[in-house]
Simulated assay, not measured.
Amino acid sequence: MNRWILSACLLALTAAPAAAVDIRLDTYRNPKNETIRIFNHMYLDGVRGGLMASNAWLTRHGRPLLFCMPGDLALTSEQVEEIMLKSADKRSAKGEMVVALLLLWGMQDTYPCEKPASQQTAPAPPD
């Protein structure tokens, strides 16, 4: 049974396009129609889920997190979009910038992780 499932998964992966489609900022901000706008929001929500899953994996393996959200916080799709768009504005992102990367940077800006004392910058010595 497990071999059958593995074979089906491999078949699905080889049938899929070789490269995943990334949504660019210009396409996100200027969708051609309502259907594309909805797909863009679904994509951004999927990116959020992937980033959260990555953080969960990093936590489980004792690695530094990508960003440090409060544990009891649940982000809405609107909040995720706002974080991504603020990140784009902060970086003066051009239309070809990948939305997923802007969201990652925005999450890091919005929910930074505290650096351990050993990594914090020491104050400058007095003159």
Rank of each mutant, 00 (worst) to 15 (best):
T14I: 12
T14G: 02
T14K: 09
A15E: 06
A18K: 08
A18N: 03
A19V: 02
A19S: 06
A19E: 06
A19F: 11
A19Y: 09
A20F: 04
V21H: 04
V21G: 00
V21W: 01
V21E: 00
V21T: 00
D22F: 09
D22W: 10
I23V: 15
R24G: 02
R24S: 07
R24C: 01
L25C: 06
D26Q: 13
T27D: 10
T27K: 13
T27P: 02
T27N: 08
R29H: 09
R29L: 15
N30Y: 14
N30E: 11
N30I: 07
N30C: 10
K32S: 14
K32I: 13
K32Q: 14
K32G: 15
K32Y: 06
N33E: 04
N33Q: 06
E34K: 14
E34I: 11
T35L: 12
T35F: 13
I36S: 04
I36R: 13
R37H: 08
R37Y: 03
R37L: 08
R37V: 00
I38A: 09
F39T: 05
F39H: 11
F39G: 00
N40L: 05
H41E: 13
H41P: 00
M42P: 00
M42Y: 06
M42C: 01
Y43R: 05
Y43Q: 02
Y43G: 01
Y43M: 03
Y43S: 01
L44V: 05
L44G: 01
L44A: 01
D45T: 12
G46M: 04
G46T: 04
V47R: 06
R48A: 11
R48S: 08
R48Y: 15
G49K: 04
G49L: 04
G49Q: 08
G49V: 03
G49T: 01
G50M: 07
G50S: 09
G50N: 10
G50P: 10
L51T: 03
L51Q: 05
L51M: 11
M52H: 11
A53V: 05
A53F: 09
S54P: 06
S54L: 14
S54T: 14
S54R: 14
S54I: 08
N55D: 13
N55L: 11
N55Q: 08
N55K: 10
N55E: 07
A56E: 14
A56G: 05
W57F: 13
W57C: 07
L58V: 05
L58S: 01
L58K: 13
T59Q: 15
T59G: 03
T59H: 14
R60K: 14
R60E: 11
H61S: 09
H61Q: 12
G62E: 05
G62V: 08
G62D: 07
G62M: 08
G62Q: 09
G62H: 10
G62W: 08
R63P: 03
R63L: 15
R63A: 12
R63M: 15
P64N: 02
L65K: 11
L65N: 04
L65M: 12
F67C: 03
